[in-house]
């Protein structure tokens, strides 16, 4: 059911990390996360310029059912925030690896990240 694109790397907390993106490393959440959360209705993201630390909470994602912490998969400074998902959080459900990206980071240090195969195996996806 879940799809885990090959070109990305993944954190244990279900964020994906795309180091090939422009304007820093792009971060979002996986379909494993969106399937578990249900319909997302609110995202609370770090602001551009804020420092984030790998493995620490940097925001919140709220669905109809529950609230989940958003963890930073990398350490660095937030470069850009996806205003489109703040306005329309449903984008995270409909296109989690595309238009539903969350923010980009100028990375100073990566946290532990997995390949698509490792992440898929760990989550039975």
């Amino acid at each position: 059911m879940s799809n885990i694109p090959d070109g990305l790397r993944y954190s244990a907390e279900h964020e994906w990390v795309d180091t090939q993106a422009s304007n820093g490393t792009r971060i979002g959440i996986t379909t494993v996360a969106t399937d578990a959360l249900g319909d997302i209705v609110y995202v609370d993201l770090p602001e551009a310029g804020a420092s984030v630390t790998a493995g620490e909470v940097c925001g919140e994602i709220e669905s109809t059912k529950s609230v989940s912490d958003l963890f930073a998969p990398v350490t660095g400074t937030v470069a850009a925030v996806n205003d489109a998902v703040v306005d329309d959080p449903a984008l995270v459900n409909s296109d989690p690896y595309g238009e539903g990206w969350l923010f980009t980071v100028e990375v100073s240090e990566e946290g532990p990240l997995m390949s698509a195969a490792e992440y898929a195996e760990k989550n039975g996806a």
């Binding site: 059911m1 399937d35 249900g38 319909d39 109809t64 059912k65 449903a90 459900n93």
Partner: peptide, 20 residues
């Protein structure tokens, strides 16, 4: 293709596609 949840001791559909 329901997503199931345990409710009151029963496996019940939580949602099929989107609960909204």
């Amino acid at each position: 293709g329901a997503f199931f949840t345990d409710f009151g001791g029963w496996q019940m559909p939580l949602k099929y596609q989107s609960e909204l």
